[in-house]
Design a protein around this nucleic acid. Structure first.
Lengths: 191, 191
DNA sequence: TGATAACTGAACACCTTGTTGAATATTTTT
DNA sequence: AAAAATATTCAACAAGGTGTTCAGTTATCA
């Protein structure tokens, strides 16, 4: 039915933009649709042409980010046959950096743990290639290990995004050598 | 003004109980005060005698947990002069276990990242005693390291709470030897 | 029994929600 | 330029939540 996708996409983008500007200021449950449409310069009814409710527009933003991340991961897993963890991390964090406007908030103190969970699931294959597969560890123990290193990594990246006091490469090098490379790994030393 | 603190405390507890039973079922923003008071068997007005709004009662529950945790930490830091990380962790996780009804949810996918942040702040002194203080690391790097190990640890504990497939002591031993003890530490080997 | 505290019940004005249907504006097609 | 399709507006709606008030009821305790 959408014969003018550019127009409706622009409208959606404007609404998302307005929503996000409010979301950075206050929790989602205090954001009304009237506020969003007023800020974006639309009629309240227009919102309902594209989204069900406030959570729908929030999900749209998150799904969009997840999609982009999934794409980058699949790409880096295919074309990068080496086990260079640092380089793969660099691709990832660069993407976060590109969308840091969203990532900063979603991964932060007022963010969404479910979003973090989804990110961890997506990133897991990369770390998993590096970890030793069930060598002496039960499946449950591997789950715990994964949880540890994924959460730790994501938390560091999140904090660095909030306050990047060192260059991207340096941060990644620091993290890999000081934390991840000390995990039970396929290779002994740092990568 | 409270001449019968037992009564009002019981009322507060009943309201909190009702709120929590709803909170485990749906997001906080869809919980109305009418629902809470109906479930607890009170008049809607009674709620406003004790809490400002739904977030106020939520905060009360969280603050209560934080207080208990803070107390345990201060206690374990004073009376336990040894650097036995495992034992201190055991005290902590036992407390989580006692209040697992709340901890499970608050630390989980539908939980509150701000609560996790507060927990990490409180736990930090314990890990900090074990970590090497700024030996070759800048203050910023120490922050990142802290973030990594705190988030990792909390995530593992959270996952174990959701699905405790091994005994408490075993989980802690596993985590300490496989993860935390590999961090830049004051002692070389596992504790 | 009488005083005090805890709780109820009803009403209030105000705001948000999601939905409608008809009107208008803007673009695309012919 | 006229016609057709699409995008957006506008006003109204019932339903329901919010936080507050105040007079009335019930329970507790001394």
């Amino acid at each position: 039915m959408n014969k003018q996708p550019q127009i409706t996409n622009q409208t959606k983008a404007n609404l998302q933009e307005a929503f996000w500007s409010l979301y950075t200021q206050k929790p989602i449950e205090k954001i009304s649709i009237r506020e969003i449409t007023d800020l974006a310069g639309y009629n309240r009814g227009t919102f309902y042409l594209y989204y069900r409710d406030v959570y729908d527009i929030f999900d749209a933003i998150k799904d969009d980010l997840i999609d982009k991340l999934t794409f980058v991961i699949q790409d880096t897993m295919q074309h990068n046959e080496t086990f260079d963890l640092s380089q793969q991390m660099e691709f990832l964090v660069t993407l976060f950096q590109t969308h840091s406007k969203y990532a900063k908030v979603l991964l932060g103190d007022h963010g969404d743990p479910q979003f973090s969970s989804r990110i961890k699931e997506i990133i897991w294959p990369i770390l998993n290639r590096y970890f030793v597969p069930s060598a002496g560890h039960s499946e449950y123990e591997m789950k715990l290990l994964a949880e540890f290193y994924l959460s730790g990594t994501l938390a560091v990246v999140s904090r660095w995004l909030q306050d990047p006091q060192m260059p991207l490469e340096e941060m990644i090098h620091f993290m890999v050598t000081e934390t991840v490379s000390r995990a039970p790994s396929k290779k002994a030393g740092p990568l």
